[in-house]
Design a protein around this nucleic acid. Structure first.
Lengths: 185, 185
DNA sequence: AATCAAAACTAATCTAATTAGTATTTTAGC
DNA sequence: GCTAAAATACTAATTAGATTAGTTTTGATT
């Protein structure tokens, strides 16, 4: 009958994916876990705190997926794989992704730490392209910005037609990489 | 003593810019207008409906600004101007921009209409580059995705250092345009 | 078996959205 | 100007959900 924090996070994430961010309430989470709402406070600070943790968990998972999928590969291929993993997460967990968006407006230290890990990871991938880059930051920001923006924009159609979304994203990323290669050859 | 819908929208937008999306409540809007909360229902459907209208109003304003700033210019210059106008709006109205993000997860017919206008507008700018493009859509999506993602990502630092943000965005956009020119020359 | 801390519960409070119903004011037609 | 209709404001009441306070139960450890 005892509940763990992990279960709470998982339940909240599931509800988000099913009903959207606005569907996540302490009432709904408690009901799904078959406990009373106030009992949640033995594990969490507040609804906002829980949502932030859902977001963090998702962000870490994206970092993890990108890391896994790019082990042993480099250059454009690696960056394409990263994009694929990113889109893949978004399609599998639209509600968590929405929560991540929300979290970017409610950042705390931990959010920044995870983002920093992400920047570091993408930086390594960019470096693996072997380009003549003086400053890594601008390139990383460009790639991350594109990834986020393109994926978000395509979410609607991506849920309906994942295959098309992957192909489209790959083509678009190719164009971006083309520009990067051109500039930093 | 009478209140107009315009005033309500303006007040809600101002509160959003000042306190963030989560600061917009019917209570706060009513207080700022010096009326009682239920009186708002003579003009709006619900809090969610009001937020959607705030978002729509902001989206139309972005379309308008881009239109204005690109009158009489074409090609990369026009696209750079569009990006500048976009970033400019975001810096001036971060709360409304946050509401627009939120609205993308709560779209309705009107949202889609405004987005469609935006696609059309960006399409014209891309066409003005005089490239050899068979399908306009992918290029428009790439540009829009980049703009949205890059601007959003930079919001934090852009509020602190607008000048830097404009310069960075312009450089990044140059790279994207370089890739587009390369591919569709 | 006794104890202590964690975690569940019930009961109560608080905030904010929303609804119902009433009064007032503006507008339009005469 | 005067009246009826419509719009808009108000008060009062309801509802939902987060949060807090205080109590009881549970489970691990001695």
């Amino acid at each position: 009958m005892r509940i763990t924090k992990k279960q709470i996070l998982q339940t909240a994430s599931d509800i988000a994916d099913q009903d959207g961010l606005s569907g996540v309430s302490l009432k709904a989470v408690a009901a799904a876990l078959q406990i009373r709402t106030p009992s949640l406070y033995n594990h969490i600070d507040s609804l906002e705190g829980l949502l932030l943790e859902v977001a963090h968990s998702g962000m870490r998972e994206i970092n993890h997926q990108i890391t896994q999928t790019t082990v042993g590969i480099s250059g454009d291929t690696a960056i394409q794989s990263a994009g694929e993993a990113y889109l893949c997460f978004m399609i599998a967990h639209p509600g968590v992704y929405e929560t991540i968006q929300w979290a970017t407006w409610h950042q705390n230290n931990e959010t920044e730490q995870i983002l920093s890990d992400y920047h570091c990871l993408m930086g390594k991938l960019v470096l693996s392209c072997g380009l003549n880059i003086a400053e890594l930051d601008p390139v990383v920001r460009l790639l991350e910005g594109f990834l986020h923006g393109y994926a978000t924009q395509q979410l609607g159609s991506a849920l309906a037609q994942p295959d098309v979304a992957f192909a489209d994203m790959s083509s678009a990323l190719d164009v971006v990489l083309l520009g990067i290669h051109q500039k930093y050859q």
